[in-house]
């Protein structure tokens, strides 16, 4: 049921019946090492190229997530997935191995929330029974597509973020056992405040996050205090500060219940400057730490708002500003 302008409240509240996360080596040294289901020992995952490795990571994650839901591949009737590479090859090439219908998304780093929101709509309306929502990213594929060769001896600017190597997958269904449910989703609008520095993606995405989250509060008549955690995707340290300032400017003061996946994932000694980014960033944090904390009952209600910077190398070379997007879902713990 649609409430307000952009929010859908789910009558059946789809359950997250399975999830899995794979993180890269560097991420394995970060803050969530004990929460990840699997940490890579080799960034190429036994493959010849980084692109093949990214594909294999996403594929592996989906298979394992299906396992964790006690389902077989044949039970999955829809796969919703996206990634950061041109023509989303990682997702569509992965989908070759699944005998399910496939919806490919491009939402940059917001893909995890976008895929869950679309998946939840499908499941809630009973169009599909079991839906797999996945995304992932790889530092080395993103680096060569958006930035420079890996071996080039340059310095990353202090506003930059580190692309997370990793993938996450959640399985949505109305059947099956789980105490985590998606109760509503707010689809975002593309928001561009004229930031042109492709390194400073936090600043480019913060207005989109602000807009979607405020819309969610207005649509559902909720307040920031209603949530145990309000979690943005990968704004990074600087982007989070900007986001908090923007929210305060619009009359919402977020307290200790706010955090950001990009800010949380690495520890301070890892020289990532503003923290993590990439589609895999929010995907691995959500599918490891957040779900475990929801299961344990530490969190009861989480607003997960993943943000994406919708730029391409060509648009930034042509001097265009960076549009941002943010999609939000509400995760609730319910004992049943």
């Amino acid at each position: 049921m649609k409430v307000g302008n952009q929010t859908i409240v789910f009558k059946n509240k789809p359950k997250i019946i399975g999830s899995y996360s794979v993180a890269g080596e560097k991420e394995g040294y970060g803050n969530f090492k004990e929460y990840f289901d699997y940490v890579l020992k080799d960034d190429k995952f036994g493959e010849k190229t980084f692109e093949k490795a990214e594909r294999k990571i996403i594929e592996h994650t989906i298979f394992k997530a299906i396992d964790s839901a006690n389902l077989t591949v044949a039970d999955i009737d829809l796969l919703v997935s996206g990634d950061l590479l041109n023509q989303i090859i990682s997702s569509s090439f992965t989908a070759r191995h699944f005998d399910s219908t496939f919806i490919g998304l491009y939402g940059a780093c917001s893909t995890m929330a976008e895929s869950l929101a679309i998946g939840a709509c499908m499941v809630d309306a009973k169009h599909f029974i079991n839906v797999a929502c996945a995304t992932g990213s790889h530092f080395s594929t993103v680096e060569r597509q958006y930035r420079y060769p890996l071996e080039l001896g340059n310095q990353r600017p202090p506003v930059s973020q580190w692309t997370v190597t990793g993938a996450g997958c959640s399985i949505l269904s109305l059947k099956g056992k789980s105490n985590i449910r998606i109760s509503s989703a707010t689809f975002g609008k593309v928001t561009d405040y004229g930031i042109k520095d492709a390194n400073n993606m936090g600043a480019a995405m913060a207005p989109a996050a602000m807009r979607t989250i405020i819309t969610h509060f207005e649509d559902t008549k909720s307040k920031p205090e209603d949530f145990d955690l309000i979690l943005t995707g990968d704004l990074g340290k600087l982007g989070s500060e900007i986001f908090l300032d923007l929210m305060e400017h619009h009359g919402y003061k977020l307290g200790n219940n706010y955090n950001d996946c990009g800010q949380m994932i690495y520890n301070n000694n890892q020289k990532t400057f503003q923290g993590g980014s990439g589609a895999g960033c929010s995907a691995v944090v959500l599918n490891s730490y957040i779900f475990k904390k929801l299961q344990e009952g530490t969190f009861k209600k989480v607003l997960f708002a993943a943000t994406g910077a919708l730029l391409s190398p060509i648009s930034s070379q042509q001097g265009e500003s960076i549009p941002g997007i943010c999609h939000a879902i509400v995760l609730e713990r319910s004992d049943d």
Binding site: Q155, P158, V159, D192, Y193, G194, I195, N200, A203, P207, L238, E241, I242, D245, S321
Partner: peptide, 21 residues
């Protein structure tokens, strides 16, 4: 709005630890 936002972001960007480099 964009001009104001860009000015705000420019002021917010950290300008530290340049000297050692």
């Amino acid at each position: 709005r964009n001009k104001k936002y860009n000015e705000y972001v420019d002021a917010k960007v950290p300008k530290t630890k340049n000297f050692p480099t």
